[in-house]
């Protein structure tokens, strides 16, 4: 039954409490905003881009206010592990979409009735 960990001071406690309230309020606002953007007729690329920005903003807010990544002392190992994970995630997701889109294009599965000669000449620029 060890109790050696120090108790945060009243000021620290209040600071953390404010961080949680702030993070929660901002997250709720962004969630509701994203929902209303979607249900009020915005479509296509504008919707995709605005929702992406809001999702990334909420991601940053929760990392900041809930996961307390900025409270870490030197050396900032958590931040480095996080950065590595972000780089790997980008490679996974962008790489997968790129490769599969390319494959899809060359298999011509989207428009199977397309004239093969037209595809070679127009889309690939071969034989002009």
């Amino acid at each position: 039954m060890e109790r050696h960990l120090p108790t945060p001071s009243k000021a620290e406690h209040t600071k953390h409490l404010h961080q949680y309230i702030m993070g929660f309020a901002l997250s709720v606002t962004l969630t509701l905003a994203a929902y209303f953007f979607t249900t009020n007729g915005i479509t296509g690329w504008p919707l995709f881009l605005s929702l992406s920005v809001m999702a990334l903003a909420q991601f940053a807010i929760q990392i900041w206010f809930f996961l307390h990544i900025r409270d870490e002392g030197e050396p900032r190992w958590k931040l480095q592990a996080f950065n590595l994970a972000m780089i790997l995630l980008t490679i996974f997701i962008v790489g997968t979409l790129w490769i599969m889109r390319n494959l899809d294009y060359h298999m011509m599965t989207k428009d199977g009735n397309k004239d093969y000669n037209e595809f070679i000449v127009k889309d690939e620029g071969i034989g002009n």
Binding site: T31, A34, T38, F48, L51, S52, M54, A55, Q62, L67
Partner: peptide
Amino acid sequence: WHFLDIVWIFIFTYVYLLGAA
């Protein structure tokens, strides 16, 4: 638990909202 909420932000945005739109 915070981590699970963070993952859900992206499910909510990319699967549900953009899926429904």
